[in-house]
Design a binder for these strands. Sequence first.
DNA 1: ATGTGTGAATCGGTTCACAGCC
DNA 2: GGCTGTGAACCGATTCACACAT
Lengths: 223, 223
Amino acid sequence: MALPPPLPASPDPPRPRRRIPEATVARLPVYLRSLLEVEAEGQTTVSSERLAEMAGVNAAKVRKDLSYLGSYGTRGVGYDVEYLLFQMNRELGLTHDWPVVIVGIGNLGQALANYGGFGDRGFPVAALVDADPQRVGQKVGDIAIQDVDSLPALVRDQGVAIGVIATPATAAQEVADRLVSAGISSILNFAPALVTVPAGVSLRKVDLAVELQILSFYQQRRT
Amino acid sequence: MALPPPLPASPDPPRPRRRIPEATVARLPVYLRSLLEVEAEGQTTVSSERLAEMAGVNAAKVRKDLSYLGSYGTRGVGYDVEYLLFQMNRELGLTHDWPVVIVGIGNLGQALANYGGFGDRGFPVAALVDADPQRVGQKVGDIAIQDVDSLPALVRDQGVAIGVIATPATAAQEVADRLVSAGISSILNFAPALVTVPAGVSLRKVDLAVELQILSFYQQRRT
DNA sequence: ATGTGTGAATCGGTTCACAGCC
DNA sequence: GGCTGTGAACCGATTCACACAT
């Protein structure tokens, strides 16, 4: 399976569009990071063994995961670093930036706004939004805080595609609803609350208290 | 199975110590949060159906999960809120505080230090640590930043049990090693890097870039 | 009648092991 | 000989469905 068999008269490159397991999707960014390291080392090729070691998984899993993207490896050799990087970036949709809006500019929201880690990696913080009229107009870094009502305009005019919820728990669902109705279909929720979204909208959550409580459970058990 | 059969002459209350699946452990904090809400509403009893709705899972899962803690429900009635809260807190090790040390007081570290969400929920930020001599001695809120070398003393004298890594990726493994050798066996890693720890040490990771990239994948696919 | 507790069926994901290709 | 790609076996977790307790 060296080259994909040329489909009969297909006008533009048909994307594979295989169904990729959720667990695999969650690991792709980790492989991407590993590949970038390998690239930085100047290696032109890399084995599943090596990638596995760098990503903290086993080699069989790497091979199976990568096989969902297509047959991009060479038997007896390994994976071409550049080529795999290209495919991975394409698959993850990282060929262009995804502007982000942060909603709720309290302690955590400000921190996320200042945190460089977003912009670096293709997720520039395009806007900050808060429901508190007192905060609207204030600046964090060089971005002014806007009213919640400006969400639809942000989506329309700035192409904001991802919403980050950093409000108190009580406001989270309301904010999510407004994000969705403004046309945002990817949400990252930091509020310690259950948020539900319609089908077709992606939702990920990060709950620091939950993480600490999980650690507490195992710590407790050890002693 | 109303009462656990009395074991022959066991001197002190034998904890159940059943093996609890990892996936279940990760949901216990969510049930806890839901229970606290139910308690606040003044309900004295709650069904698996209701808890499921609040936690965003289905009722069968709630029942199975709770059954790992013991048979704390009453058929035809539901779960006693207070009693279940007590058991849950005990199981999660939340009957006392777990002091936390944050390592790496850059943007993210400072944010986490200021973020109230930790202390409120039984995880007081007991200390801040940074490798940069320039930062040592400075204060964030009312906590002074200490040198990395003070980690063993923090564990010994202040009972710090959980380490939070908020350093750049390059320092993460080194910091983890120092936390472990200082006697810390629960680590929450925010650095975008693979960190490995010896058996017997718990490690959870939160990688914001990874979360965004996962969202990007699905966003990409939709369009 | 109601709602838990739990075996049994099912499902998604991981690991094994080897055929296939370089 | 070396390393990928992938069916098959396996494993943990989820869901089903119902016996059982109140």
